[in-house]
Design a protein around this nucleic acid. Structure first.
Length: 417
RNA sequence: GGAGGGGUGGCAGAGUGGUCGAAUGCACCGGUCUUGAAAACCGGAGUCCGGUUUCCCCGGACCGCGGGUUCGAAUCCCGCCCCCUCCGCCA
């Protein structure tokens, strides 16, 4: 959510920023509704003041044993008018809130108009054989057929050695993040609407989200939702910032509208596990923290021996809450191209405002802080990259030593059959 | 799932229709006293929204959240959320 005061005092700057991300249409109605509200509010407050004064007089009269029936009769009318005004005000406010919630975050000045590759790192492997894709390499350790039989398309059983690989990957990642100040968290993945609204996924991406039929709860598409909400309605001590969390949880996405895309294997599935980084920082530290999250993502990819590139994401591809976003894309030999593995966003005060997360500096007033998120490891996609880049001519896969040290098999046997 | 109890300021805890934004205690921040400290005493202090001579004052809102009754609601009524206890069930 954007700062209404800033929109009011400098609408042109906001309009210019919103136009960069493809339309400032909603802004005008916000400003109009705000003006409406600001006209009604003082009227209502004047009536309330009148009521308050009368209430004092009435109770004084009654205490003195006098009669206040005339004044009470008068106040009846005032109360009726106040009620009517209040109705109008609430209608205006609710429209205003809806309109305001539809506005995305203002993009960072540095966010580019086009996707921009910042760098390519690591060595793209060259094979003296035709590289297999992850599904061929995994065999029935990624069991799509039975997954589909159980739950439908885009679901899979992960089996055998790959389970141990996942656990090692998660363990290794959480330890690395722990050294970087992130507290591990396993959050609820079933959340109320407020949490999704607060993080900007609603009303923006409804069609991507699973909703329970009987319980006003939603399955999260990322633990970002739960991590952001961990401090909702709190005023944090500025001295204890930054606060960093590493969430580990399954993620659920409907993938509506992506029919026919990435249908093979587990690249795009309805359920996957992910380790997510989330930071609460002072506003002035947000950009630096963003680079820090990106750096950790790169450290992870580098340590796993995966060739990757970093993309500065175009303004029109930013999610509603992001002011700027970097993706890390790993090289997939079977596709001969880079594909998204991780992503980090600076959401500035957009989520903090919606979730009412503030900080207080020594002796100061509460002020909004900034939130940032970044993928540490999207397990499914990372395993794809590990399999495909680590494959050998016989179909076996060499797993990085750091993961073997955490309990992964050092070498995955060739798939059977 | 059944039965009951409860959500009040940073914490504890009064308050069941009328000067209640809210007693009191603790904690906190000033000040007096003291060589210094403690104690004692005096004073201050919440959040949000408007206005404004922009933190100086004025108005409004906030006693879990949202409605309702009333001239007037922390207090009465309804719905929701959360916490606790007991029973049942369960990994």
């Amino acid at each position: 959510m954007l700062d209404l005061k800033r929109l009011r005092s400098d609408p042109d700057a906001a309009r210019a920023a919103l136009e960069r991300r493809g339309g400032a249409g909603g802004l005008d109605s916000v400003i109009e509704l705000d003006a409406q509200r600001r006209e009604l509010l003082p009227q209502l407050e004047a009536l309330r003041a009148e009521q308050n004064a009368a209430n004092e007089a009435i109770s004084a009269a009654k205490a003195a044993g006098g009669d206040a029936s005339e004044q009470i009769a008068q106040m009846k009318e005032v109360a009726a008018r106040a009620k009517e005004l209040d109705g109008q005000l609430q209608a205006a406010e609710s429209e205003l809130n809806t309109a305001l919630a539809l506005l995305p975050n203002l993009p960072d000045d540095d966010a580019p108009a086009e996707d921009t590759v910042l760098r390519e790192c690591g060595e793209i492997p060259s094979f003296d054989f035709e590289p297999r894709d992850h599904l061929d390499l995994a065999g029935d350790r990624v069991d799509m057929e039975r997954g589909a039989r159980l739950s439908g398309a885009r679901f899979a059983y992960l089996r055998g050695e790959l389970v141990m690989l996942e656990l090692a990957l998660v363990r290794w990642t959480l330890e690395l993040l722990g050294r970087n100040g992130f507290e591990p968290v396993i959050p609820p993945v079933l959340v109320r609407e407020e949490a999704l609204h607060g993080t900007g996924f609603l009303p923006d991406t409804e069609q991507q989200i699973y909703r329970l039929a009987d319980d006003d709860l939603y399955l999260v598409g990322t633990s970002e939702v739960a991590l952001a909400s961990i401090h909702a309605d709190e005023i944090l001590d500025a001295d204890e910032l930054p606060l960093r969390y590493a969430g580990f949880s399954p993620c659920f996405r409907r993938e509506a509208g992506s029919a026919g895309r990435d249908t093979r294997g587990i690249f795009r599935v309805h359920q996957f596990d992910k380790v997510e980084m989330f930071s609460f920082v002072k506003p002035q530290d947000a950009k630096e923290e963003h680079l820090r999250l990106l750096d950790i993502e790169e450290q992870i990819l580098t340590a796993l021996g995966l060739p990757y590139r970093v993309v500065d994401i175009a303004i029109d591809d930013l999610g509603a809450s992001a002011a700027r976003k970097f993706d890390c894309e790993a090289w997939l030999p079977s596709q001969g191209r880079y594909r998204e593995l991780t992503s980090t966003s600076n959401t500035t005060d957009f989520q903090a405002r919606r979730l009412a997360i503030r900080m207080r500096s020594e002796g100061g007033k509460p002020e909004l802080l900034a939130t940032l998120n970044g993928t540490a490891v999207a397990v499914g996609r990372t395993m794809i990259a590990l399999l495909e880049n680590g494959q050998q001519a016989d179909g076996s896969v060499v797993i990085p030593q750091c993961l073997a040290d955490c309990g992964a098999p050092a070498i995955l046997a060739p798939a059977e059959g």
